[in-house]
């Protein structure tokens, strides 16, 4: 077999497929009073993602299955959902990393109004996000055509929180957010952190005042659900703790 490369393609790289059962929480507001669970058997490869399974179901079994997706590679943040009870991005969750000897449960993220199947109304989430003024507010003028300087250490200070993709996996994994949805939630605080700790920004006090509200940072109970849920690996609980300290002691 030393000449294998010249032979017809050997079949040992014909990849094995598996039948995987997905149990999906369906809801159609036009018909259903309550969400219901529905089974689908799908032929999958180990390297497929959960998003591939949803596509296969939609294209081959039930065209009415509704979910959001866009980039399919973990950047756009549109396909966060609850997979086997954990918030994850469907496009980043590989079949091989799930236990397929049992059915895989897929449902919409919690704590936001359910619209249809796996789609929730993201507006309350973005409302909180917008409230923290997630944009640079700088009064310094470096002179026409010139840049402002920023030390490497100052740039590193907020690097982790620039990675947020606003998928809501963190906020919708937070038990405090589930209770009444009034809490700003981890994602809004992460995005406030990104600007509070940017040395070029001059509006930290405004944002810290906003987050010192009774629905602000103090409602965080450091359960670390958000940090575990973040598909970008942001140390969210730590970022929230840093914002809490800044509220008490001012921006460092």
């Amino acid at each position: 077999m030393s000449t294998a490369t010249l032979d017809a393609p050997t079949q040992d790289d014909a990849v094995q497929s598996f039948t995987v059962t997905f149990i999906i929480r369906r809801f159609d507001p036009e018909v259903d009073d309550e969400p219901r669970w529905q089974d689908f058997d799908v032929e999958m490869f180990a390297t497929d993602r959960v998003l591939d399974a949803l596509h296969k179901i939609k294209w081959e079994q039930d065209g009415s299955l509704t979910f959001r997706r866009s980039c399919a590679h973990g950047i756009c943040g549109s396909d966060a959902m609850r997979i086997n009870g954990r918030n994850r991005l469907a496009c980043k969750t590989l079949i091989k990393d799930l236990d397929i000897s049992k059915p895989i449960y897929v449902e919409a993220i919690k704590g936001l109004p359910l619209e249809k199947d796996l789609v929730v109304d993201m507006e309350p989430f973005f409302e909180s996000y917008r409230e923290v003024q997630p944009f640079l507010i700088a009064r310094s003028e470096p002179g026409a055509g010139k840049e402002r300087v920023q030390s490497v250490a100052d740039r590193a200070r907020f690097d982790d929180t620039t990675k947020c993709i606003l998928c809501a996996a963190c906020t919708s994994s937070c038990p405090v957010f589930w209770t009444d949805g009034q809490y700003f939630g981890p994602a809004a605080i992460v995005n406030a952190h990104r600007f509070i700790f940017d040395s070029r920004d001059d509006a930290a006090k405004v944002r810290l005042d906003i987050l010192n509200d009774k629905e602000g940072v103090w409602r965080c109970r450091t359960t670390f659900n958000c940090t575990e849920a973040c598909p970008r690996g942001i140390q969210i609980t730590q970022a929230i703790a840093e914002v809490k300290q800044a509220v008490m002691r001012g921006k460092p």
Partner: peptide
């Protein structure tokens, strides 16, 4: 940069 772009920086703060 004015709009807030988080550019990588040199040790003296230049972009």
């Amino acid at each position: 940069e004015q709009l807030g772009m988080p550019f990588a920086r040199e040790s003296d703060g230049r972009i």
